[in-house]
Amino acid sequence: MTEVTLVQAVSMALARAMEEDENVVLLGEDVGVNGGVFRATKGLQKKFGSERVIDTPLAEAAIAGVAVGMAAQGLRPVAEFQFMGFSYPGLDQIICHASRLRNRTRGRLSCPIVYRAPYGGGIHGPEHHSESTEALYAHIPGLRVVIPSSPVRAYGLLLAAIRDPDPVIFLEPKRIYRAVKQDVEDDGEALPLDLCFTLRDGDDVTLVTWGAAVKETLAAAETLDSRYDIDAAVIDVATLTPLDMDTILASVEKTGRCVIVHEAPSTGGFGAEIAARLAERGLLSLLSPIERVTGYDVVPPGARTEHRYLINEDRIIAAARRAVFFPEAPTEQDHTMEDA
């Protein structure tokens, strides 16, 4: 066991995958000699050679496209975009080709690619360095969207993503790249890609989240418990598409209440999809309206106002209490459910 951060776990998984399979190659801007802007590929070029850890020109369309060509011919490329906001020049390749080659060729060609990108705010970066546009990718049939929220899940999910036969958008919440350390065993064990992770059981309300927001959501669940005697379940969705709705539904059937938490803007955010599916399949279990705690429908702001934009524990607590006290409005005097 080694105690590592999330970004170190990414690096460990990459090294492991490369050791296991020489068809795994890495490419991206500065990933080789410099080990990447966040050091996720640190030391890998030294270990595996410049042939397998490739410094590319600053050209995202070509990075994305070269990966398609490699993958369709049997390699397993892992391509890095330095920031999610830089992935858009590669969208044509990802949407029109990586996600569709299998379909249009009836399975004769396929694209086992992982496109990695640090995503989300919290590092005081300007807008392109801070956005959460995972819903763009989740909208595309044929793509998986996977977001780890801990070192253990980063290691296991990245290994699974690299071994998966479909293209994966692997979004790494950079705000928590170094937030916590966890023991991660470098045993090559992958985690399942098609399951949500229940991080906390609870009977009163289900908090559904992913990415860096898992941190605030878990903290909110603790506070809900200690201060308000509200027992919140916390589900880390982890794989947005294909979505494991069964785990979410099972929890909501028990709690009757759901708060969806994500950093991305509200409109058309992936929370809307989860809410819609809850309405379709779980409406009769709901005791209160579904709550969403999300980013505002604005462009990610600059460094000085970022803290006003990012979701925080208080907003999650308030939403959970609204759900629990529905149809009454909670007041600060409401300390326990019994009191209400």
């Binding site: 070509a62 060509g69 049997g74 044509d92 390749q93 080709h97």
Partner: peptide
Amino acid sequence: AIIGAHLPIAAGAAWK
């Protein structure tokens, strides 16, 4: 069918 898309793809196949 998307103009230019297959040039990087061909380069990727050549890389392999």
